[in-house]
Structure formats: C-alpha cells, structure tokens
Design a protein around this nucleic acid. Structure first.
Lengths: 190, 190
DNA sequence: CTGTTGTGGTTTCGTGTCGATACTATAGAT
DNA sequence: ATCTATAGTATCGACACGAAACCACAACAG
C-alpha cells in the first residue's frame, strides 16, 4: 500500500504546529495536549464537559487523560465537580485563568503569515477538505463526531428561541446550540 | 486575534494521526517521531542524512534529536558513521530492518477509508493547500524548505542524464534528483 | 604553530506524555 | 442482594522534549 501524501503532510504539519504550540505554551506550563483539552472545554456544551468525553475527543486512554486533568487542576486551569445526578461522573469547569490563557495563545505570527499566503479560495478548499476528512475519520472511530449542536440530527428547531434536543428532551438556548456535543450525530442525508 | 480554523483542524487531525501512529508503531517499538525521522532518511539525498538536517526537518532541538537517534540505533534501525571528510558530522544510514518496517506501517485502514470519502478534486485541492502551507511555514522558519532536488533553484538540467547541483558543483544521478535536500531553495518566480 | 571562535553532536536533568494494568466507587439490572 | 457495567483514579515504566553544559573537530587569525 503506497503511503498517502495527505497523511504524510498532516503528520508533518501537525508536528510543526505541535512544536510551536509547545514553545508558546511553555511560558504558562501548558503542553500542546493541554491546550487542546482547554479549547475543547471552552467550546463544549453542558453534557460534554466530562473526562470521558475528552477521552473520545483526544483519542487517548482514560488513564492518560486523567493525568492531564490532574495537572491542569493543580495549576488552577480547571475545577472538578462531581455531578449531583450521577456521583460517578465529574464535571469540568474552566477557571478565569484558563479563559484568559486561551485568549493569549492562538497561532504564532509565522503560522498566520503562512496562511495568508494562500488565496481565499485555496483557504476555503483546504478548510473544507480538512473538515470532511476529520468527520470521516471520527465517524469510523466510535461514531463520535463532536459537531456543534445545531447541526445534529437530534436537534429540533422550534419557533423563535425554542430549540430542543431530541435525545435528552431538554430545552436548548441559542448559546447551547452553538456548542460542541459529544452525542452529536450527522444528519443522515441518504 | 481570532484563532484560525485551519490551524485548529490541523492540530486536531495531527493528534489523531499521531495516536494512530503510536498504536501501530508500538509493536515495533517506534514512536511517532521516530517514524517521521525514518521516512525522512529514506527519502533524503546524500548531503542531507545528518542529525543537523533532522533537527531542521523535525523542528526539534538537537538534544532531543540526538536522543531519538541513539534509541533508533540501539534498536537496529540505523547506523551512524562519521563522515571521512569532516570528522564532526555523522552520517545516518538506514538498515534493512528500517526499510522493511517502513513498508509495513503506512496509514491505517480507517484513515485510508476516510481519504476515499473525498472526491478526487477535493483530494487534489487539499493536497495542494497543505503543500503550500507547509512551504510557506518552512520558508519563514530558517528558510529550509526540504524539497526534492529537481525543483531547486540550484538544479541544473543537462542533456540526457547529466544533471548538476549549482551549489556543490557535483554531478547528480536521476535518482539523486528525486530526493529531499536540506539545501533546497525554491526557484524565485518573481 | 598556537589561540580563538564556530559548529556538529552528545550527555544529563527535570517535567510531562502515554499506554497498561490494577483499582475504587457508584449506577443499574436481575 | 448480587452481578455487571460505567466513570474515574493510581501506579509504573519507557520515552519525548527543551535547557544547559559539554566535547571534538574545523577554520581562521595572528
């Protein structure tokens, strides 16, 4: 099987992005993976802020994720609260420190510059390609797609602000419907 | 500065690719980075098979790279030979074991499947986008582009098989001209 | 021939990643 | 009441990674 050019490119770019991320994150004692975890937690909805969801999102084992979370909690980036409904599950909440850190560490200038060398249409095609690749990859891998609520097949759009999740039956605010959900499933178009 | 969607997607896909790579590489005691190093060494030319070149290619520090190489040598994936011309530099040579390993560990089936869900034109656009992104990124970062010989601005195409490198003045075979060179520079089109 | 400086590589150290395995505690079903 | 599944933690060992100190050779000055 000849090795895929796309795969190779992504591994390579991923590595470079990773080492940049490590450099700028190191001032705040944040490893690349930690940044990804925090970014996820900032953008996920209230059903999806658990260690288990992160395990699916990051593609690591629960032991590893548990370690990272312990560290992040120790450094004051998040709080763990046990769920009142189910005492087994832990809810993860970002602290103000985390929100602030996230605002400070987006891509480096060299990365942004590199992106700007692409034409708008190239950028668009690239984004689209990456997104569908990710979607396909996740679909194969446990079926979790981690999309935002309003694109889910369980999403029921009501009149005005009245949305609802067909899976849990709960009412969703506008804000909710823009967040990442671990139960997200693609609408079947076929 | 709002964080870039492309950057985010690549970090994410990179992480997933990485964890796949770790899984399939673990049977051979190969870490994701090791695989990238071996792949580079398999495809680079005779000027570029040194630790220093790998430092540039992988974007890591020389200490880290030295560690990885030590490990790879210990496991029998490569041999280090000191250069007869300059006793400071080390030349890295893959063993048969390495070549064989490389043949066995290309992307997983799920990854290839995901790629196949893209249309040919999408794949093409994606590849092109990733490539120019990588090129721009490397250009900013030390100027090393790690392209293949025949696309370099020092490459002089002669009659028949007679190629030559304008930088070193040496004669290049057809095979040489298809390999990665650390001295590679884009042809200036402007 | 002797400094001096620069460069290619290695060593050492500390912190963190990561998977594997074993473990705890709660929920839910029979 | 027991059995089983689920969410999470603890511990261990191998390794990644950057930082800093270090060594050997090369190149060049006088």
């Amino acid at each position: 099987m000849k090795t895929s050019r796309i795969h190779q490119l992504i591994e390579r770019l991923g590595l470079l992005a990773r080492s940049e991320s490590r450099r700028i994150g190191s001032e705040m004692a944040l490893q690349p993976v930690h940044v990804q975890a925090l970014q996820y937690l900032e953008r996920c909805n209230r059903y999806s802020n658990t260690p288990a969801a992160l395990v699916g999102y990051l593609g690591q084992t629960k032991g590893t994720v548990s370690q990272s979370l312990k560290l992040l909690a120790r450094e004051g980036y998040l709080e763990k609260r046990t769920d009142p409904e189910d005492a087994r599950v832990v809810r993860l909440h970002l602290t103000p420190k985390a929100h602030q850190a996230l605002r400070q560490l987006p891509p480096t200038e060299t990365w942004m510059h590199a992106e700007r060398t692409l034409s708008p249409s190239e950028r668009k095609a690239l984004t689209a390609g990456l997104e569908s690749l990710l979607k396909a990859l996740q679909a194969a891998h446990g079926g979790r797609t981690f999309g935002i609520c309003s694109t889910c097949r369980h999403f029921q759009n009501g009149v005005g602000e009245e949305h609802r999740c067909g899976l849990t039956g709960e009412v969703l605010t506008d804000d909710d419907s823009r967040r990442i959900c671990q139960e997200h499933e693609e609408r079947r178009s076929a």
